[in-house]
Design a protein around this nucleic acid. Sequence first.
DNA 1: GCAAAAGTGTTTTCAATACACCCATGG
DNA 2: CCATGGGTGTATTGAAAACACTTTTGC
Lengths: 223, 223
Amino acid sequence: MSSLGKEYNNHVETLISIFTIDKGTLQVLLLRKKSEPYKGYWILPGNILKNNETLEDNVTDAVYDKTGLLNVYIEQCYTFSNIDRDPDNRVIATSFIGLVDSTTVEIKREERKNIETAWFSIDELPKLGYDHENILKRDIEYLKKKIINSNILKILFPSDFTLPELQHVYEQILGKELDRRNFRKKFIGLDLIEDTFEKNIGFNGRPAKLYRFKDDIKEINLF
Amino acid sequence: MSSLGKEYNNHVETLISIFTIDKGTLQVLLLRKKSEPYKGYWILPGNILKNNETLEDNVTDAVYDKTGLLNVYIEQCYTFSNIDRDPDNRVIATSFIGLVDSTTVEIKREERKNIETAWFSIDELPKLGYDHENILKRDIEYLKKKIINSNILKILFPSDFTLPELQHVYEQILGKELDRRNFRKKFIGLDLIEDTFEKNIGFNGRPAKLYRFKDDIKEINLF
DNA sequence: GCAAAAGTGTTTTCAATACACCCATGG
DNA sequence: CCATGGGTGTATTGAAAACACTTTTGC
């Protein structure tokens, strides 16, 4: 069993779509590729898997190495195994989603000067290398299913956020507009968030109330 | 890039939970292991991945080799990468679910005399080798989510089935009882099935009407 | 005082649930 | 005629959807 031929050796990599909310918009972290193939294209962070680590360990390390972020919430999404998805090698890719709240991101953003990274709104993605556009789309679909059936977005939001901000992110991920009154009614009725009694001053129009997620997480069907 | 060290070589396998309905009960196909480790235990069918095939091709071949079944409907479920899930080697496993209708199964069942296979009700599973119990449970959870959000069970049912049979399988997978009247109302209202005007004679009690799934598949939230 | 965005309540509609009686067959 | 399982209708409940006006701030 342990003497399998060379044709059974495979390379496996992890790839991760790290999402955050910045200025009320859902963004994904991409790296700029500095060598051929796909030089100059943007790609998802990730790493080749060693044979003494799990996929989850590997992707956690990759996130730290390439972004400086620790304690990123991750979930496995899908495994891609097309023969020619990498022109040089046969590499199988297992994709993950990662979620970080924007306040954490601000702190860590400056730490990796040697790697070119950028956040992109999921509505305005650049040209991606390899099959990463396809993979990212699937990761977004996965996220969409998750937010319908759980309050996973809690992870993305710092302690103070407004309901219009929260609603905007739901609309972005679900790809449709939601009624403001019904959204408030529903979310407040779910008993997941609480009023901070602060207000979001300094913007146009009436200031929005600031909320925070409660500590206890209940998994509920939201939509 | 193509000269990665040995530590980046990994073995990958596929594993599949093939489900069918037999005598109105959801069953899964298992193989009996004939050599150590886990000799005599039951395991999920699957195969080691070669570096010139996709996971989907590999699992399709595995299904044919080990069961004689062709054209099995498959979906990828999850990838398992614990270091010690196989005591001999480090092997990463990608699990799939497969669905076959019971009439097809009957025809092919006799073709593989050299491999010991058996169907087990998902309520009465034997002792499984490796981490296959864990994987099978996850596959069943995946199936559960699928049948809530789609009419995937269409694949499991031959042209003639009764609503009580269909209901029984839903109850088995969901793990709870459903009201007969509401189940009928809902399923008939979904416009997915049609009356064959035949009856299921020869059993106790009033004969049940036989239905068939319509050809056009609409993906709808069912429960 | 006006533009801009936030906050609020009511009505309608539809799906989910709960529930009890009659029907067709085999023995 | 009786045991067994299949088939049917109605009333209630609760969530989702549709919808328009008022409030608070910055300028």
